[in-house]
Amino acid sequence: MTMPFYVAPEQMMKDRADFARKGISRGRALAAVSIQEGILICAENRSRTLRKVSEIYDRVAFAGVGRYNEFDQLRIAGIRHADMKGYTFSRQDVDARSLANQYAQLLGQTFTHEMKPLEVEILVTEVGPTHNTDQMFHILYDGTVNDESGITVLGGSCEVIADKLQESYEPTWQLPEAIGAAAQALSSSDATHNTEDLTAPNNAVLGADELEVALLARGKSGRAFQRIEGQALAEHLER
């Protein structure tokens, strides 16, 4: 019988964290900003069909970066959780905080007990009646929950993007300027420019067909999630 090699727990956790971080940093980033009209979520995404940002419930949205199949599973689990909770209790009892805790539990569990940690970072966000009541939970691959306010950036080179956004950010931003600023900031990531087209100028701002944009509209009764795409998005970006 062979004995397994002893691996110190510190080393094991570090290896797993490195593995997950590597996977996540390869992906393209996304940013969420709390503004006048609600919460704007803006992701760099060249696919028209594989979504990174999605509706969970009336005032709650989900966004993920990293491995698509993994965060899509989490997205669907979140929708199921929210719909079952709304069915069992009432629509107003569905909130972002309890969902974020559930996600954290699942991610933490997978991180320590499974062969491979999930290579994802997710955002669960809920729009409130005012800017101060907006909630943004940024959940990491190991189940760490960060409660953030104003701005959140997920994915590769998120510090660079967050710094860039923070420079000009105002809670009183209106939709067009927020979309413009988010597109600008996302374009400053390294990942964007290390891709296929090496001839592209390095300072090009992402266009309407490279962005996935959605808004959780403030003060709307019922389902507040709306996508901004196609012509409407192009018009916002031009301004």
Partner: peptide, 26 residues
């Protein structure tokens, strides 16, 4: 209420009624 996750072969897909049945809420 825990997060509902399923093995690939038991997944109810986009069907909410099947989900309720799986959760014993039908």
């Amino acid at each position: 209420m825990r997060l509902p996750t399923f093995a690939a072969q038991d997944d109810p897909g986009p069907n909410f009624v099947a989900l309720l049945q799986a959760a014993g809420l039908a």
